[in-house]
Write a protein that binds this DNA or RNA. Structure first.
Lengths: 241, 241
DNA sequence: GAGTGGTCTAGACCACGCA
DNA sequence: GCGTGGTCTAGACCACTCT
């Protein structure tokens, strides 16, 4: 291999996952349909069963299918709410709706708040943090007010990139080969204060769902953080477990 | 085999999961420790690697360990909050605290509410529903007010069983061989009304986390439902994804 | 009985972290 | 360079659902 090409190898099970996920989202497989059996998928895609099963297992974890012994893999009813409690979610479940992202505070380097909502490593503390605030709107109504904190470690030119109507996840993957792998979150119901009420266009005191999230990536030791305020009056958050 | 013994076979990967989970909860493996490597676990427990990996994969999904390529399986910091957003959770993360369950309304057979928070099958609608209300207290403070709806299908003598300080999950498993496999949930922040405020001992209007859950089981087509009101003032809910 | 997913074996090669 | 977890192969037997 003579070029400096990205020899990024996408695992076979991941490729199959993406294909099936796409077909489900496009309606090629509809709710209640049976996917091809595991053995059929093996033949179609020239894989062995464990490989196929890993793809299907991921689809189950992300809520796209359910399996039934002796029957098959059944396409699941897609959530009506907003799937933000799983990795796949955040914006994917909103497809088809009028979705908009507005930058309230552009990415800029700051000191970490102290105390911070999660424990930070020394490396994180010393590196400073890239701070940004965004508002997510669905059908012109603000639903999420999102404050993001990213350790300023090896992310050249990050603060000059644009995020308008573009997923942060996509930016991290596209420019830095950082993939989100999972995370943890704390949930609370809190009353809106004046600032949150202003952004979400609700009166102060209205119950708001507050999520504090730590998001892990494939870069070892690198994770980022988000404090997310959701107006759940019209749209419930949706999760699977 | 001459007896009517329950020849329930617990899969090997599940047995290993339970052993490692127990050791982590007991502190034999502490936060940050490395578990034995996959190859070591293979030898110790006379399993092959895929079997070991399935056990470890379940531990990752339930938040007990994280894996790092080239390094090993690292025991994860256990959540400080209340892990109710994953199957393993509900009460398990509260071990060590003073936990109490109080029955407000004993199980009794009713008609389903119409409309109900989830779509019901015809079989479910026709069978009626076992209804109960419970209050969960931690250190004498009420945290959850839980309304449970169970389809009245093939559950002999269910309404006469006692649930005081006993897990509903354990009852279902012990008497009916029903295992919880997963589910879905909708989350909202709502103001407490008078009734909820009375049970959770908070003033009306205080923000409360409302979870509507559909819980799947290993019995095909059998799931049950829960409407859960949580006071998150002192304890955040905790979840992994 | 035929087909399905659930479990399991016994190997293999790779990329990555660490010393 | 060695051990780790990540991916993958090519089979096997079982319990379950459907007809």
């Amino acid at each position: 291999m003579t070029t400096l090409e990205k020899d990024k190898k996408i695992p076979q099970y991941r490729q199959l996952y993406e294909i099936l996920r796409k077909h489900i989202l496009e309606g090629i497989y509809k709710e209640g349909d049976l996917l091809p059996s595991e053995n059929e998928l093996c033949i179609i895609h020239s894989m062995t069963r464990p490989t196929v099963r890993q793809a299907l297992s991921d689809l189950v974890n992300d809520g796209f299918i359910k399996k039934q012994k002796g029957k098959g893999s059944i396409v699941h009813q897609l959530p009506k709410g907003i799937g933000i409690l799983s990795v796949a979610g955040t914006t994917s479940a909103l497809s088809g709706q009028n979705l908009e992202t507005r930058i309230l505070v552009k990415p800029n380097v700051k000191q970490w708040a102290d105390p911070f909502m999660f424990n930070l490593s020394e490396a994180e503390k010393n590196s400073g943090c890239i701070y940004m605030e965004r508002l997510r709107l669905v059908n012109r109504k603000p639903l999420f007010y999102d404050i993001t904190y990213i350790p300023n470690i090896n992310l050249p030119r990050f603060t000059s990139r644009s995020f308008e109507n573009k997923s942060l996840f996509d930016t991290l993957r596209g420019f830095y080969q950082i993939e989100v792998k999972g995370g943890e979150q704390k949930l609370r119901a809190i009353p809106a204060n004046k600032e949150i009420g202003k952004y979400l266009e609700v009166p102060a005191g209205q119950p708001i769902l507050h999520l504090e999230r730590k998001i892990d990536t494939n870069r070892v030791g690198f994770c980022f953080y988000s404090s997310l305020y959701c107006n759940t009056e019209d749209h419930a958050l949706f999760g699977i477990f």
